[in-house]
Design a protein around this nucleic acid. Structure first.
Lengths: 191, 191
DNA sequence: ACGGAGCTTGCGTGCCACGCATATTCTGCG
DNA sequence: CGCAGAATATGCGTGGCACGCAAGCTCCGT
């Protein structure tokens, strides 16, 4: 990875972190007060540069979730090939989403704030395509022809999203891993 | 329903229709040329009134899909109570989405245009909450406590979305009903 | 039929996304 | 090591948009 590409990625996460942090500070009600100028200044770049990376504040705030979603496909590929399908999916998702345990404030901000819900939905849905590819590879299907990989990927992504919401609504007594296991068990065969 | 409420609903669909029609005319590449002023004028209202109904062009363009999604819960409740669960879900969705057969141009516009994909995703996802309520009612579960209704609703909504995409990619040789049946069969027990 | 509630509209404000041009920094190769 | 070319950061300017506010007009329920 080039120095250029590393800087670019660092800038991206810096802007995303700044955006999320400012959003959390203001809270859901004061989200409109988080201005592009503030995000850029906090991240140490110019407003114009911020706009080279994200085309809306919502996108920047939810970028950490989008980045994680993009890794789900690889997480499934990392599971041993002889593991049963449902078990592999559940283990992959739990490994990706519970190390470390998600930040409650950040997740609550993007999932429970109406103005951010749409972008959060997009962020979770970004997991579908790479996940469908990984599912097709594991089951020996064709991602372009068979419906199963894409539909299962969408179901899994939806289950993750529902699990996130329930985990936020519930108190801190229950672990995210358990919630994920229960939700995913509804859409893939749990052994 | 009041005359006032009927007028309001008529205005809403007039704006939505105008927005979608103009978007289809310009095509995916010229979507930026569809101005708020044009939508409002085509619908016969002022730009300010347009903004009383929708807060973005994308929302207006995708409103027909959002309206349909909101009806999925009722469609499931309309199925006979003794029908097996999976069969009832499939029949409800097919009844709602294939009468009449969807407009290919409109569906292609909102699902295949990148700038509209996010709003289309929101529109499809709006089916989840009412559908989860209906599923909970039918299965005797508690929508607030049990994960199954919400997760299944998300899986069904995802399957509908994937089916829509596949139906657009495939030629006109296959009916949307068949595509829906195949996709939904991946997430609910097909008899 | 009448008083009030609800809807439409024009105007003004502040923010924002993005094209363009320029300065600066990095990369690969001779 | 140094240079030509490419990629990136930034300033500036433009056009558009969402929305608050305050009339003016229409409709509803009594």
């Amino acid at each position: 990875m080039n120095l250029r590409e590393r800087n670019k990625e660092a800038t991206r996460v810096a802007i995303g972190d700044a955006a999320l942090r400012l959003a959390i500070e203001q809270g859901p009600s004061g989200l409109a007060l988080v201005r592009v100028h503030d995000i850029a200044t906090t991240a140490g770049v110019s407003p114009r540069t911020y706009n080279n990376y994200f085309s809306s504040r919502e996108e920047a705030i939810c970028s950490f979730q989008a980045d994680r979603s993009r890794q789900v496909g690889q997480a499934l590929r990392d599971r041993p090939a002889d593991e049963p399908f449902g078990q592999a999916v559940i283990a992959a998702v739990i490994a990706l989403y519970t190390e470390p345990e998600p930040d409650r404030a950040g997740l609550r901000m993007i999932m429970m704030t109406p103005e951010l819900a749409g972008e959060a939905l997009k962020a979770f849905t970004m997991a579908e395509d790479p996940l469908a590819e990984a599912i097709a590879a594991r089951t020996g299907m064709d991602a372009a022809r068979d419906l199963f990989p894409a539909v299962t990927a969408a179901a899994v992504a939806g289950a993750i999203r529902v699990a996130g919401r329930r985990w936020l609504e519930a108190g801190s007594g229950v672990s995210f891993a358990d919630t994920l296991r229960a939700a995913l068990g509804c859409v893939v065969a749990a052994p």
